[in-house]
């Protein structure tokens, strides 16, 4: 019954889209039937697939850098009052700043190469990793640390056996949000310099028919969904004792 409702929402949307698409024409809104045909063509187009695949590489590299910087930084900010007081104002400033605004100066500093895209990815995802890890580190219960101390745990032992397991769900949640932002920002960066997925989108936007554009959007949607659900799977597999609180 619930499955039926879920499907009905989607199919109503597809039907409305099909009807609107038919009456408006391909130039304004290609109906799902022609988008599906276009996707079939896209799947056979090795060139396009390679471009999409290559666009994901900077997203993954940038995401890895964000985790490597953001997770320790967030943990330190959560556990040290001094670091928190010094860094928090900057974090709240950067997290509300749109990366798009920083893009022009990044282009001046780094050119429009591969590392430019990586930089945009890092600058848009690292704050979310930091702040989510921070939330986790702040909430580690005093009690647990006290128990560790009364049993004479060294700082390293306390970190490894108490803090890390308590932080784990937050690290994963942060990684997930960070990955979503990494995929988004790759598209943003590439729309500025018109390479990769951004270039494909721009090119498709010039077509008479919107079928190709819409099919690219569906592909990007697939990548986004796959990335976030894939990381969710990894999370459940690595930390089965604590399913990530916020999906």
């Amino acid at each position: 019954m619930i499955l039926l409702l879920r499907l009905s929402g989607l199919s109503l949307f597809l039907l409305a889209w099909e009807a609107a698409g038919r009456s408006l024409g391909d130039a304004l809104l290609a109906p799902p039937s022609s988008v599906a045909l276009e996707m079939w063509a896209l799947a056979g187009d090795a060139q396009t697939l390679r471009v999409i695949w290559q666009s994901l590489a900077p997203a993954l590299v940038g995401f890895a850098i964000s985790c490597a910087i953001g997770m320790p930084l967030g943990a330190i900010m959560g556990r040290s009052k001094l670091a928190d007081a010094l860094l928090h104002p900057w974090m709240s400033l950067f997290v509300v700043t749109s990366v798009a605004a920083i893009v022009p100066i990044l282009i001046l500093l780094l050119g429009t190469g591969w590392w430019f895209v990586v930089a945009v990815v890092v600058l848009s995802s690292v704050w979310y990793v930091v702040l989510t890890t921070y939330q986790g580190a702040v909430r580690i219960e005093r009690r647990l640390l006290d128990v560790g101390r009364s049993f004479g745990a060294s700082r390293l032992q306390a970190f490894r056996t108490i803090m890390l397991p308590a932080l784990f769900p937050y690290l994963l949640a942060g990684a997930r949000i960070g990955l979503v932002h990494a995929v988004r920002s790759v598209v943003l960066a590439q729309l500025f310099i018109l390479t990769g997925i951004g270039g494909l989108l721009q090119e498709a936007g010039m077509d008479i028919s919107t079928a190709r554009l819409l099919s690219l959007l569906v592909v990007i949607m697939g990548i986004g969904l796959a990335a976030s659900s894939g990381l969710g799977r990894v999370a459940d597999w690595l930390a089965p004792w604590q399913k990530v609180a916020e999906r």
Binding site: L10, G205, T210, L214, G222, L225, S228
Partner: peptide, 17 residues
Amino acid sequence: PLMTGIYAIPPVAFIPF
């Protein structure tokens, strides 16, 4: 399901459209 799907598309990707 519909909203989750559309949400997965980066908003900037809609720009050409």
